[in-house]
């Protein structure tokens, strides 16, 4: 009888949790490394077209992003034609110039001539709005542009 009682008193040894911080840190580091930071919250559909003659966008130099596409499901009230998004809000073509100027102010002076404008445009957008934005960029002398695309067979873009 006493035999059984003694066992009960001993109970289960506590699980050693000394390595828990290690595991947590490991996960933290993993997600820190693997996460791609999104520059802006998108309010538009932004499915990029594919191309195979692509060059990598060099992050060594400053990059500004201009998004275009039709408003996504939550923003249907803004219509269903392609619109421009600068930073976190919808914008008009006339605001592109001011946007570039304000972007330039945030970079060191010697880097300003290297500013690349990355155009992230939905594949369904039409060229009218793209042409207008390009014209605005020329007006403010932001001539280096990059049509950001996915990597794949470009011929699949054409239906």
């Amino acid at each position: 009888m006493s035999k059984f009682k003694k066992k009960k008193d001993g109970g289960l040894p506590p699980v050693n949790t000394a390595s828990l911080p290690d595991i947590v840190f490991m996960l933290l580091f993993f997600f820190m490394v693997a996460t791609v930071m999104r520059e802006d919250t998108l309010k538009i559909q932004n499915q990029l077209p594919l191309a195979d003659q692509v060059e990598k966008l060099d992050k060594k130099y400053p990059v500004s992003y201009i998004y275009m596409g039709k408003p996504s499901a939550n923003y249907k009230k803004f219509g269903n034609v392609a619109r421009i998004q600068l930073n976190d809000k919808f914008a008009d073509v006339s605001e592109v110039g001011r946007f570039i100027e304000s972007e330039r102010l945030s970079y060191r002076e010697e880097l300003i001539p290297y500013l690349t404008v990355s155009l992230k445009i939905d594949k369904e957008a039409n060229m009218g709005i793209v042409g207008d934005v390009k014209q605005e960029l020329r007006k403010v002398n932001a001539l280096k542009i990059n049509y950001t695309t996915g990597t794949g067979d470009a011929l699949t873009n054409m239906k």
Binding site: V33, L57, R138, L143, T149
Partner: peptide
């Protein structure tokens, strides 16, 4: 880490 890529172009002044 995913990196943006695309077609680089230079607009005419």
């Amino acid at each position: 880490i995913e990196k943006d890529s695309g077609i680089n172009r230079k607009l005419p002044p």
